[in-house]
Design a protein around this nucleic acid. Structure first.
Lengths: 218, 218
DNA sequence: AAAAAGATTTAGGCATACCTAAATTAGCGA
DNA sequence: TCGCTAATTTAGGTATGCCTAAATCTTTTT
């Protein structure tokens, strides 16, 4: 297994490759790699038994592939917890360096890091950390932009993307904060939020990447 | 810079490439790589300004190469401190995993790790950790086997090699322990030591890899 | 259903980093 | 100094993982 192959597995996993067939274009876009290169690599991953793949159809992780992908994600998120909790990293920095560390983290290091950090259930960006047995728990969440004006909820997760993370952290967005839409600009205009009592403006696009508790609706 | 090139730089550094010319055979032996491959890589490192190299003569680090090598060693040893102090690693495990981590540790991570660990001066095996400005301090040490029978000293450093580390740690050898040669077998036979008050037998070859304070001699 | 558009694969190349085998150079002893 | 040996380099080849351009398949649109 090489870092490159690991990136492919992670990409397929995040694109839904546990349940559905993932098409090559999505992988190429995610990894910023030419489609032809993707085809080639998928052939290798198939030969190694990590994915199911049929030409022109798409790819899906095998159980072995799922195991590898989940282990990578687990390592990534544990490192993020360490980097922020103990080394004072920012959201985006933690994500960046975890991206490097995950590829060379052997199982025993993952296990001891998990123990050192006291078996955290979530990474600093709010994503669930897969357990050592591969179990991943998920809460019912919805993107912030779908909240009605006046409706209150609580921030649970943000998408891990450098630019977004810096923007949100600069605005004071935090996991667990209570949030209420005060005003929504027309045509996907900026949203005015009540964030833990403070008034904050946020772009519509960013709001789509913030996930909050589903609110009870009839 | 790639992990491979980094390994070459580190090897040259450890073989004395800061002061003297290092010959290819030593590098090939250290890295377990065919001599022809070494020649090829040295050409690349020269083109990149990391080493001085003349065919058939040998190689020596440039100031840029020294900087890179020292930064690698610094990262390696800081990771070792972390792995043993906080994750309960053994001597040999710490060395192994640090070998992986050093290659993907960006400068900011080295800096924050150093701070988190409180700027340690030595790694768990007793080697000095280069400071962020590149400064490396060294104590006058000698191998344990050169101690006379009856002579006492203190263990300061052990060579980082998996088999040796497991052997020594199993024997209860620790950095800082007081040591005295009780008996030395003839013909490079085993040494009987008084180690912090406990009687321990150790192979001659292992003793060559244990460094103790130089003792005052006239 | 045919054509256009989009996705995917094939073909041919490039760089890295390794290898073996063969040629060359350097250094040492007779 | 000749010649042997050890070290080194050159030559030719492999696998990985990426690329572009061209061909092919699929899907959508008309």
């Amino acid at each position: 297994m090489t870092p490159n192959k690991e990136d492919y597995l992670k990409a397929i996993y995040k694109l839904g490759g546990m349940e559905t067939l993932v098409n090559n274009k999505q992988i190429a876009d995610t990894l910023q790699i030419a489609p032809a290169s993707v085809t080639e690599m998928l052939g290798k991953l198939k030969r190694e038994g990590l994915i199911h793949y049929e030409a022109y159809k798409g790819s899906r992780l095998t159980s072995e592939g799922i195991g590898a992908a989940i282990s990578l994600v687990r390592g990534h998120r544990l490192w993020e917890v360490f980097l922020m909790r103990h080394l004072g990293y920012s959201w985006s920095e933690a994500h960046e360096d975890a991206e490097l560390l995950e590829h060379i983290t052997p199982p025993r290091l993952i296990a001891r890091l998990d123990q050192f950090l006291n078996h955290p259930a979530y990474c600093p960006h709010g994503s669930a950390i897969p357990r050592s047995d591969g179990q991943v728990d998920c809460m019912p969440l919805q993107p912030l932009n779908l909240l009605f004006v006046g409706e209150a909820s609580r921030i649970r997760r943000v998408t891990e993307e450098k630019g977004l993370l810096d923007y949100l952290q600069g605005l004071g967005v935090t996991i667990g904060a209570s949030v209420r839409i005060v005003e929504a600009g027309a045509h996907e205009g900026p949203l005015t939020l009540d964030l833990d009592g403070k008034r904050v403006q946020i772009s519509y696009k960013a709001a789509c990447q913030i996930y909050v508790d589903e609110t009870a609706r009839l």
